[in-house]
Amino acid sequence: MSAPVEEVVRTAGSHVTTLGGRLVHLEVVPGPEDRRGTPVLLLPGCAVPSYAFRPVETALPGRWLVALDRPGMVDTPWPGRLPSLAEEVATLLELCEAVGTPPVVVAHSMAGPHAEALVRQHPGSVSGLVLLDASVEVEARRPSAAFDRAWLAASRVALEGSRLPPFAVAAALSTRVAVWSQSQRLRIDYSRPPGTEELFRRPDTLATLVAEQAAYGDQLADLQDLLETTTWPGTPGVVLTAGTRAGWVRKQRVLAHRVGARQVVVDDSRHLMMVDRPDAVADAVVGLLPEAERQTVGG
């Protein structure tokens, strides 16, 4: 029998648990029990595993950190469908409830819309929001049902095709190239943590990557609908933007205005900001902690 999720989020290590009716993987750094303080939730973007946040964990010693892998990514099966924004919000809401104290949420790329939707629908569930080069569309357009069916079929092809060694090897190589192209710090021959090659040859992982990319249009369209029916509740935030493209910086400025956040352009980082500039991410988190807790970070 699995432990209650309230216990899991306070126990160091790697865990599979159920949140929002879905199996997810959590990587937990509980921090000292005598001063656990405000928890920090780390939400990776599409195709990014939770361990990509380890440089940020190093930059935030002594903090209670919980990193989430969505269904299919690490140690869990792909659910066999395209994920919806409502599912993502349900998972995050239960995670926020499990930690007990409204957390600071750090959301990268495609996880940004998930976190924004959570805050809009459940004011007070989050104490602060850091968006890392988060996905944003000024005018999101919903794809057709035929588009969704085609991509769901592609996810199933990835699931079955990756059982063939040549397909799996090619997929693992392509993810290496993708990571290299999205980081200013890593070289093409960068060292991966143990188990990474196996992770990106895993059928469920590859099916999940395709399914999450396919769900992008619907999720951003659902968020667009929320923008028309909700107002920002005043949750403080920081938008960290990779300063590699002027047009992207302008789109991120729109996002920062929308969520009442301060935008910080990080010129020496590409999309994988938690890898390139974990110190900037840590600084943004500390700035959103209660004043009394800022003095204890790392101390």
Rank of each mutant, 00 (worst) to 15 (best):
E137K: 14
R250D: 14
T58C: 05
G298D: 07
D279E: 06
V136F: 15
V275A: 05
G31Q: 00
P290C: 02
V264W: 01
G37M: 12
T18E: 14
M273L: 15
W151G: 03
E94W: 13
L19R: 00
D267W: 01
L85T: 09
L132C: 13
L186V: 03
D218G: 07
A292N: 02
T231V: 09
L82P: 02
D189L: 09
A256N: 04
V99K: 04
Q184V: 09
S162H: 14
T230L: 04
R36A: 13
G234D: 04
L26Y: 05
V297K: 00
G298T: 11
A59H: 03
P194T: 07
L131K: 02
L42W: 06
V297Q: 07
R250Y: 10
S2N: 13
D225S: 10
G287F: 00
R277N: 07
R201A: 09
L65E: 04
L199S: 11
C46L: 13
E116K: 06
V138G: 15
R185S: 10
D225Y: 01
L19P: 01
V264P: 00
P166Q: 09
R142S: 08
P290V: 06
C96E: 02
L93Q: 11
G161Y: 11
T18C: 01
G195T: 11
E33P: 00
E116D: 06
T18S: 09
Q224P: 09
R185H: 10
L65K: 08
A172I: 02
L92V: 11
V254G: 05
A158T: 14
V126C: 12
H257D: 15
L43W: 02
V104Q: 07
P103G: 10
E7H: 11
V264S: 06
A246P: 05
P233R: 03
P123N: 11
G298N: 04
P83H: 03
R277H: 08
V177Y: 15
V138R: 15
T235P: 03
R156E: 05
V136T: 12
V259M: 05
V48Y: 07
D222T: 08
D222P: 09
A154W: 10
